[in-house]
Design a protein around this nucleic acid. Structure first.
Length: 715
DNA sequence: CGCATCTCA
């Protein structure tokens, strides 16, 4: 294809116009240019621009290393797609990706971050009025849609990594489909002559317009420009997306990866942990130098393999004991996570034991060997009980490919799949979309807030389970967010939908002023929203327990979390009085360590706290405090967590009132020994037992008083 | 007496 030359003159002209940092040496610029031109996608720049011009929806299948994420937005900018001030928005499922790619692209453009190129994620917005290429998380774009239902400032929206099929991506795709229809119909109202459509097409279009305008409110009067939509996926089947978007055109962009040899076992393995262990040693003893990445399902498995390897090392000849084991999983403190990026000691082989964090979130350089037992831990959802148990299942084909690809980033590699080849062909093509295995209450609240009332009729790329929809609608109704006829209630439902929280937490905030405890509830909800605040290492069990005692409350875990937050806040504020902010933050990290508190989680809770505090202030809520008396706070918790109430049974276990399940207080709770009669809890986790976590003591009569829709006085 | 694979607003 001769038209694919990459030395496009518009593009060069644009680079020259930019007023980037003067310190950029010509040399560095040239290197960036060379790198850009060497990317596989560079050969099809013109072709892609044509495709986008000719198709309002385009599916791009690009393998890893194609350069699609960094280059396509630049091509579109240079190709004039930001004319009239339109913005090119690119969504990512993860925050880190949005940040790192934006930084890279800003550098390639020779622009300061936040000017032409910027990113916007929760807690952080680097964009300005001059930003034209905007990277963001898909969840953030969904939030933007609440304020601007037509996403009118965007001329192009690129949904990247769509194959991952996160809930947010799936909902976004459904929304974008509607938005695009509405915008093109609005545009054709003002410029009909631009389009000449065949008759039956026009008919269908009309139907679509009627439907979309009834879905999205107040479209009249406003002239909107059409929206270009690009779906980017790394999966092999573009068909799903293409069919969803009415047979949209799909193009393929070559990737760039080193070859990876795939090896299978002859027989199925009965114990994949043991098989992984054997393979580690086999590679170490028989293969050439290079680091090893092993995919395991969880912390427990990782720690057990780590111990087993250490146990066996002394049995090896001394010259062969040069293995350095490095675990990585999400809940590991970040300084320990960073170890995967350090080179192993000279002459040592690095063996990284990882969860699926290493599939997408963390890219580790220098991996030559991948061991893939073919298993993964996934969250599921049981619409009958509302529990989301974690179960271990086989990976999908796509996942197996993603894992083996990790061995071919810096050179040719090998992947050991610990199952026979015929088993691979029996695997599912791709992982089940998250929307089919999660609680939908948040999704439904969002859609309702967007004016989409018919949830069952919503055009999802994949239908969620009908029972799951009903279960979540029921929850929202009981929380008072929905009216009898399924509409968002005013003001409770509207207020709840504006808060970036789980609906039950939002409810707790919305009603907190009736109990004069909004200040306290803001803290409690922030602390509940993050992953475990307390870090309890097995070897320092007693020590950590005494540390936590100073914060603990006899009334329950919610108040313990409140005390902990306040203690840390007080420590930080005091520190800021006597030294610089940075010094105070550093001291806080030390304080966290001494008190066995996960610093990352606490920081996250602080960020959430300041965001939702701003939110409730904007909603016009007065921030009231209950002072020393914590009774109103527990009553307020009862008024929002009433579906998570449990009563003690004669044998010391509890009965969860809404599901009827027998549950136990988790040993990490401050109420584990106390065993009060009536409690409310934050969540139910299923492992060997049904455990309930984050618990507070309440009075059963409060439930009857505060949640009469669920609890009636019984004679 | 013992848990959280991973994200997002």
């Amino acid at each position: 294809m001769p038209s694919m030359a990459s030395n496009d003159s518009t593009h060069t002209a644009n680079i020259n116009q930019l007023n980037g940092p003067k310190t950029d040496s010509l040399d560095r610029r040239q290197k960036i240019e060379q790198h850009r031109k060497a990317l596989p996608i560079a050969t099809v720049e013109k072709k892609l621009l044509e495709e986008v011009s000719n198709n309002d929806i385009l599916i791009i299948v690009g393998e890893t290393g194609s350069g699609k994420t960094t280059q396509l937005p630049q091509y579109l900018f240079n190709g004039g797609f930001c004319r009239n001030g339109g913005i090119i928005g690119i969504t990512q499922p993860r925050r880190v990706a949005a940040v790192t790619v934006a930084k890279r692209v800003a550098e390639e453009c020779g622009a300061t971050l936040g000017q032409k190129v910027g990113y916007s994620i929760r807690f952080e917005d680097t964009t300005s009025s001059s930003t034209r290429i905007k990277y963001m998380t898909d969840g953030l774009l969904l939030r933007e849609a609440l304020l601007d239902p037509y996403l009118s400032k965007y001329s192009v929206i690129i949904v990247d990594e769509a194959h991952e099929r996160t809930v947010q991506t799936d909902v976004l795709l459904g929304l974008l489909k509607t938005v695009q229809k509405t915008r093109s119909s609005s545009a054709s109202d003002v410029a009909c002559s631009d389009h000449t459509k065949p008759d039956n097409g026009a008919m269908l279009e009309k139907e679509a317009i009627v439907q979309s305008t009834s879905i999205l409110k107040h479209s009249r009067g406003k002239k909107l420009s059409p929206l270009k939509l690009i779906i980017m996926s790394a999966s092999l089947d573009a068909r799903v997306f293409s069919e969803y978007f009415g047979g949209a055109r799909a193009v393929h962009v070559q990737g760039r990866q080193f070859p990876v040899d795939i090896l299978y076992t002859r027989q199925p393995e009965t114990d994949y942990v043991d098989a992984a262990l054997i393979t580690i040693f086999q590679i170490h003893l028989e293969e050439g130098p290079g680091d090893v990445l092993v995919f395991l399902t969880g912390q427990e498995e990782i720690e057990s393999i780590e111990r087993l390897v250490q146990d066996r090392l002394p049995k090896l000849p001394e010259s062969k004991r040069n293995i350095s084991i490095i675990p990585i999983f999400a809940s590991l403190p970040s300084e320990k996570q960073m170890k995967v990026f350090l080179p192993a000691p000279a002459g040592f082989r690095k063996v990284i034991l990882a969860t699926n964090i290493a599939e997408t979130s963390v890219t580790i350089p220098g991996i030559k060997y991948v061991i893939d037992p073919g298993m993964v831990k996934v969250r599921t959802y049981d619409p009958n009980t509302g529990i989301e148990p974690l179960i271990i299942v086989k990976t999908s084909k796509a996942q197996a490919l993603q894992r083996s690809g990790r061995a071919g980033r810096d050179g040719p590699g090998k992947c050991y799949r610990l199952y026979p080849e015929n088993e691979f062909y029996k695997l599912k093509d791709s992982t089940m979309p998250e929307i089919k295995r999660c609680n939908l209450s948040n999704v439904i609240l969002q859609l309702k807030a967007l004016g989409i009332d018919d949830i069952i009729g919503f055009d999802f790329i994949e239908e969620p389970d009908r029972r799951a929809i009903i279960k979540s609608m029921e929850l929202l109704f009981l929380l008072g967010a929905l009216t009898d006829d399924g509409k968002l209630s005013d003001p409770v439902g509207h207020q709840m939908s504006r808060l970036p929280l789980d609906p039950i937490y939002s409810k707790a905030l919305v009603v907190a002023n009736q109990f004069s405890c909004l200040e306290e509830m803001l803290i409690v909800v922030s602390m509940l929203s993050v992953e475990s605040i307390f870090y309890v290492p097995r070897e320092k069990l007693e020590e950590s327990r005494t540390a936590l005692k100073s914060f603990s409350s006899t009334e329950g875990d919610h108040l313990t979390l409140l005390n902990t937050y306040r203690a840390s806040d007080e420590f930080l504020e005091k520190g800021k009085l006597v030294s610089s902010n940075e010094k105070a933050e550093k001291n806080l990290r030390k304080w966290c360590k001494e008190n066995f508190i996960n610093n990352r989680s606490l920081k996250h809770a602080r960020d959430i706290h300041s965001q939702i505090r701003r939110n409730v202030e904007q909603m016009g809520l007065r921030i009231t405090s209950c002072g020393e008396d914590m009774l109103p706070l527990r009553r307020c918790l009862s008024a929002s967590f009433f579906l998570n109430a449990a009563l003690k049974q004669p044998d010391g276990t509890y009965r969860a009132l809404s599901s009827g399940l027998t549950v136990q207080i988790h040993p990490s709770s401050v109420l584990f020994r106390a065993k009060p009669e009536c409690i409310i809890f934050d969540e139910l986790v299923r492992t060997n037992q049904n455990y309930i976590r984050n618990i507070s003591i309440i009075d059963y009569l409060w439930l009857i008083e505060l949640a009469p829709q669920c609890y009636a006085l019984q004679e």
